[in-house]
Amino acid sequence: MHTIDRSSFGRRQFLRALGAGAAVAATLPLAPEAKADSESTDEKRKSRYKESDHVKAYYRVNRYPS
């Protein structure tokens, strides 16, 4: 096994290794590939609004007409 002599591992070697590591890190993908929506056109157009208890409380507190 190859051992690193700490006295010969200077600033230039450190910066060279740091630069090589940055180059490798730049080539790695950061996020998975985007996928297309699985909803049909009808599902995208459907109403999603639901008048739940917290929505009713919001309307009541802000004095919206019922």
Rank of each mutant, 00 (worst) to 15 (best):
H2C: 07
H2K: 11
H2T: 08
I4Y: 05
I4P: 01
R6F: 11
S7C: 03
S7I: 08
S8L: 12
R11L: 08
R11A: 04
R11I: 07
Q13K: 10
Q13A: 03
F14M: 09
F14I: 13
F14W: 06
F14D: 00
F14K: 10
L15E: 09
L15K: 05
L15P: 00
R16G: 14
R16I: 13
R16E: 13
R16A: 15
R16L: 15
A17L: 13
A17D: 07
L18H: 04
G19T: 10
A20E: 14
A20P: 01
A20M: 14
A20T: 09
G21M: 10
G21D: 04
A22M: 14
A22Y: 05
A22I: 14
A22L: 15
V24F: 13
A25Q: 10
A25K: 13
A26L: 14
T27M: 12
L28T: 08
L28C: 15
P29L: 10
P29C: 05
P29W: 04
A31P: 01
P32I: 04
P32D: 11
P32R: 11
E33M: 08
E33K: 07
A34G: 07
A34Y: 05
A34F: 06
K35P: 01
K35Q: 13
A36M: 12
A36E: 14
A36W: 05
A36G: 08
D37Y: 03
D37A: 13
S38A: 11
S38M: 07
E39L: 15
E39Y: 15
T41L: 12
T41H: 05
T41Q: 10
T41K: 08
E43F: 06
K44C: 09
R45M: 13
R45Y: 09
R45L: 15
K46A: 14
K46V: 11
K46F: 05
S47K: 09
S47R: 11
R48M: 09
Y49C: 02
Y49N: 03
K50Q: 09
K50N: 04
E51H: 06
E51W: 00
H54R: 12
H54Q: 10
V55M: 08
V55T: 06
K56E: 00
K56S: 00
A57I: 02
A57G: 02
A57V: 03
Y58G: 00
Y58L: 04
Y58E: 01
Y59P: 00
Y59G: 00
Y59Q: 01
Y59L: 02
Y59W: 12
R60I: 01
N62L: 05
N62A: 02
Y64M: 09
S66P: 01
S66N: 06
